[in-house]
Simulated assay, not measured.
Amino acid sequence: MTMPMATTSGWDVAGAVLLVLWALAMWAAVAVLAYAARGPVRPWVYRGSAAVIGLGVLGQLGHVQEHIAQAGYWLGHPNSPAWMTPWGTGLANGLQLALPGRPTFGMELLHLTGNFIFLAGLAGVMVITRHAVRTRARRWARMGVWMQGLHGLEHLVLTLSVAFGSRAVGLSTFFGLVGPGPGLTTYRVWWHFVANVVGSVVFGLALYHLWRERREVRATFVVRTVPEITRRAA
């Protein structure tokens, strides 16, 4: 997959920096929330997890539309290089400045960042359902974390291989054994399209069940007073 290079504007750089900060902030929040959820009931963990989930939904909407647009472009131009939306190209150009001597690094880093924002949203569902282990929301979220975790690992390998001066190496590139061309472009575009659409459906099902089971999940964050606990025990 080639990345169109153009003059990088200040908006491109600002957007790229904000996107990376978004991902880092989400994972910092996930770490804090997951640690806090291991101790006594803390109602703020519920609110924080809900915020992380919301940001994950927002990020994945932007992420999956990029892959839908790429697949749509391929349908009309199957023999052309892979295409990116103008906003995707701008963000990739901004990220490219981190390693200007490594063509396509910005594009790889963009997709890596998008996938880790998505994964953080799924992790948020796992945190919010930590004490509601029998809910369907948690089962779907666990499936999503495994699927998206493997997908994120694929993007990490792709990004690192380009960063170290190699071709993009991964399952979606035949491990770098196939040269650039329509065949590789077709395979990679549809590989990531399917992975993102399936992952989005799983995330959507986790959110659907989380909404249906919201009272059960919310109840696990209610702090009961000592007299109430004693009265129930009696």
Rank of each mutant, 00 (worst) to 15 (best):
residue 87 W to E: 10
residue 219 A to Q: 14
residue 207 L to I: 08
residue 145 V to H: 05
residue 220 T to K: 11
residue 77 H to P: 07
residue 15 G to V: 12
residue 203 F to L: 15
residue 133 V to N: 06
residue 231 R to A: 15
residue 86 P to K: 10
residue 56 G to R: 10
residue 46 Y to F: 14
residue 202 V to G: 01
residue 173 T to F: 03
residue 14 A to N: 11
residue 209 H to C: 09
residue 72 G to C: 08
residue 48 G to D: 00
residue 187 Y to H: 10
residue 33 L to M: 13
residue 95 L to T: 10
residue 170 G to C: 06
residue 117 I to H: 01
residue 234 A to K: 13
residue 9 S to M: 13
residue 157 V to G: 10
residue 49 S to A: 15
residue 16 A to L: 02
residue 15 G to K: 06
residue 111 H to C: 05
residue 106 G to K: 07
residue 231 R to P: 06
residue 164 F to C: 05
residue 201 V to T: 13
residue 137 A to N: 02
residue 5 M to Q: 15
residue 142 R to Y: 03
residue 230 T to C: 13
residue 52 V to S: 02
residue 157 V to K: 04
residue 101 G to F: 08
residue 233 A to D: 10
residue 225 T to A: 13
residue 218 R to H: 12
residue 175 F to I: 06
residue 81 P to D: 00
residue 85 T to N: 04
residue 233 A to H: 12
residue 221 F to K: 07
residue 230 T to W: 13
residue 53 I to R: 04
residue 176 G to E: 02
residue 84 M to F: 05
residue 170 G to L: 04
residue 75 L to K: 11
residue 98 A to Y: 06
residue 200 S to N: 08
residue 153 L to V: 15
residue 162 V to D: 00
residue 10 G to Y: 00
residue 134 R to A: 12
residue 72 G to W: 05
residue 115 N to K: 04
residue 109 L to K: 03
residue 42 R to Y: 03
residue 3 M to C: 14
residue 192 H to I: 15
residue 56 G to K: 04
residue 53 I to M: 07
residue 173 T to C: 08
residue 149 G to L: 01
residue 28 A to E: 02
residue 129 T to N: 12
residue 212 R to L: 14
residue 167 R to D: 12
residue 94 G to V: 02
residue 162 V to F: 01
residue 200 S to E: 07
residue 88 G to H: 03
residue 29 A to F: 10
residue 94 G to C: 08
residue 218 R to T: 09
residue 81 P to C: 01
residue 16 A to V: 09
residue 6 A to I: 11
residue 19 L to C: 00
residue 214 R to Y: 06
residue 76 G to W: 02
residue 85 T to W: 06
residue 41 V to I: 15
residue 156 L to Y: 00
residue 234 A to N: 13
residue 208 Y to V: 15
residue 188 R to E: 14
residue 74 W to Y: 13
residue 118 F to I: 05
residue 213 E to P: 11
residue 127 V to W: 04
residue 122 L to R: 00
residue 149 G to E: 01
residue 81 P to Y: 00
residue 210 L to Y: 08
residue 211 W to R: 15
residue 54 G to V: 05
residue 22 W to M: 11
residue 212 R to Y: 01
residue 128 I to C: 03
residue 29 A to N: 09
residue 29 A to P: 03
residue 177 L to H: 04
residue 12 D to N: 15
residue 126 M to A: 12
residue 166 S to Y: 14
residue 96 Q to H: 08
residue 110 L to T: 02
residue 205 L to C: 10
residue 136 R to C: 00
residue 27 W to E: 09
residue 98 A to E: 05
residue 122 L to C: 08
residue 169 V to F: 06
residue 84 M to T: 14
residue 117 I to F: 01
residue 47 R to K: 14
